[in-house]
Computed example of a mutant assay.
Amino acid sequence: MLKEHAKLMSAFMASGEVIGRKKLQKMIFIAKKLAFPFQERFEFHFYGPYSEELTLRVEELCNMGFISEVKEKKGGYYQYRYSVTEEGEDFLKIYEKDMPFLEDCLTDMNGQSARFLELVSTVLYFDNLPKEEVAEKVFTLKSKQKYTNEEVDEAYAYIESLKKVIH
């Protein structure tokens, strides 16, 4: 059971601090699609791919004291900041982590906006479809985000750049 928690902890450790629940969801989904061994199941949701399992696992890690969750009021909404605690670092020392390049990948993703990661994860969610159909899905399902064709192209280019990091 704790093996999956350890994988998630490795992701937090590699990322440093993650700001935002949506961003965290997208980072783990993208990493999973890039073949990192995350087991959480994702479904398409309001903000793109979402995993209830991931939400629960993060909550468990917070309850165990391995992850720090800080809730901040930001304008009209709350934002969450996540980082590994000292206890979490000690916990991770016990587990063997075999995820080379995870840090490079997640550090890069953590530097991107949540909006862009939402686009990238949506593109990856429909990666079994031709690019034109994916773009159509993005424009339909994510119409409020007002993504452009250029941004969809950027998402594809970004995915390719991440694949180069891990291969």
Rank of each mutant, 00 (worst) to 15 (best):
C105A: 15
L92Y: 01
F116Y: 01
G111C: 08
L92N: 00
I94V: 13
L106H: 06
S143E: 12
A155V: 02
E86L: 15
S143G: 01
T148I: 11
D90K: 15
E136D: 14
Y147V: 03
N110V: 12
T107S: 15
V123F: 08
L124A: 12
V120A: 13
F101H: 15
E96T: 07
K93H: 09
A155M: 02
T148Y: 10
V120T: 11
A114Y: 04
L119N: 05
A114P: 03
P100C: 13
D90G: 07
V120E: 10
V123L: 07
M109D: 05
K164W: 03
K163D: 09
T148E: 11
E160P: 01
Y125H: 08
K142Q: 08
A135C: 03
D98M: 09
E150M: 09
L117V: 04
T140W: 07
L92R: 01
V120L: 13
Y156A: 03
D104Y: 06
Y156P: 01
V152T: 02
K97V: 15
S113R: 06
L92V: 03
E136H: 08
E87N: 13
N128M: 11
E160F: 06
L119F: 10
V152Y: 10
M99G: 01
D127R: 08
A114N: 04
V165T: 15
E133P: 00
Y125K: 01
V134M: 05
F139L: 09
S121D: 06
